[in-house]
């Protein structure tokens, strides 16, 4: 008996809850050398921008204990090249594609959403809100509930109703629940968290910052407790909103931790750099763990850690007894 791993992002059904995290799966072709992209719950693209972007200078990466600092700077070919070369390839392979979008102004996000509207092969649109807002002295949208909500509302308005809009939140805020609530009020159908918190490392040999950009986003198991906390808080406040949990997921146990905190889907990011087979492995491990614990539906485990201490988990056995 295999567990039912289907999950829903708003009304869109995914066959399983394991996704790639934005910016960690390349164009999909790189991972396809190792495992089929259509076996993913969904493939999340790197953040697509309007114009091509060369990104940040190197060094762009520094390893930290159980973590990775990166400052890639959204290098990408721009939306036109993405639609011409990358999306059709993913659609051909049968992948469900979540297109992540990034911009410097509300207008740019809106223009991207308009460009993507009506294009075949887009399962959902994810808004990368951790981009500097050029109209607000470079403060990232995700740090300001009102700015985030404005982006979400305008992207939602420009996106066809059948395509869910996902807001990706940053943990670098005083109150993640307030930003989450603002995004949902702005029309977000689902939330993704966490984007990388900003970190820094200094090379003591050169006595300079390790990254050319100075600071970078910290990812990997080092940030997992931060992710679990954010998912927990937001799920407690907004239990009806689907959450894609991410942050340092490397095993099925890590995925289950986020599911128990309230995530209905889990994205694998930095682990893909370490193990290109991470997604199918995490899925297999998650399924085994669910079965060991007597779940036959993933949905029964979502947010289960919120039940009062001492309460029994809802299991199949309970349901059978109650239906007698």
């Amino acid at each position: 008996m295999t567990a039912d791993l289907r999950t829903y992002l708003a009304h869109v059904e995914l066959p399983n809850p394991v996704l790639t995290a934005s910016g960690c799966g390349g164009t999909g072709r790189e991972l396809a050398q190792f495992s089929d992209v259509h076996r993913l719950g969904a493939f999340v693209t790197r953040s697509i921008t309007m114009a091509p972007r060369a990104g940040r200078p190197t060094p762009r990466m520094a390893e930290t204990p159980s973590g990775l600092l990166n400052a890639v700077g959204l290098q990408g070919p721009g939306v036109e090249a993405f639609l011409e070369r990358e999306l059709p390839w993913l659609a051909e392979r049968g992948a469900r594609t979540v297109v992540s979008i990034g911009g410097g102004t509300v207008t740019e996000y809106t223009a991207l959403a308009r460009r993507l509207a009506g294009v075949d092969g887009i399962t959902a649109v994810e808004i990368n809100l951790s981009c500097p807002n050029v109209e607000d002295r470079g403060r990232v949208f995700a740090r300001d509930g009102a700015a985030a909500a404005e982006v979400v509302a305008s992207v939602r308005a420009a996106t066809p109703y059948e395509v869910p809009v996902i807001a990706k939140l940053s943990p670098d805020v005083a109150d993640v629940v307030a930003v989450a609530r603002a995004c949902v009020d702005g029309g977000a159908d689902a939330l993704a968290m966490i984007n990388t918190p900003v970190g820094m490392s200094i090379d003591v040999d050169t006595m300079r910052p390790s990254l050319a950009a100075g600071t970078g986003g910290l990812s990997g198991p080092a940030v997992r407790p931060l992710a679990v906390r954010c998912v927990w808080q937001v799920h407690a406040a907004l239990p009806g909103v689907p959450i894609i949990g991410m942050g340092g997921v490397t095993t099925g146990r890590d995925a289950l931790e986020l599911v128990l905190a309230g995530a209905c889907a889990v994205a694998v990011g930095t682990a893909l750099f370490h193990d290109p087979y991470a997604c199918p492995r995490v899925l297999r491990e998650l399924e085994e763990l669910l079965q060991e614990r007597g779940f036959d539906r993933l949905a029964d485990a979502v947010g289960l850690a919120h039940r009062p201490a001492g309460a029994q988990p809802r299991t199949r056995t309970d349901l059978e007894e109650s239906s007698l």
């Binding site: 960690c24 991972l31 990775l68 893909l272 370490h274």
Partner: peptide, 27 residues
Amino acid sequence: EESMACGIGVCMTCVVPVIGDDGVTRM
């Protein structure tokens, strides 16, 4: 020899400026 995190092309950290066949420099 450029420092890499993944080696398979997903992490985008090992980029170098190279001139393409069309004369355009890309990272």
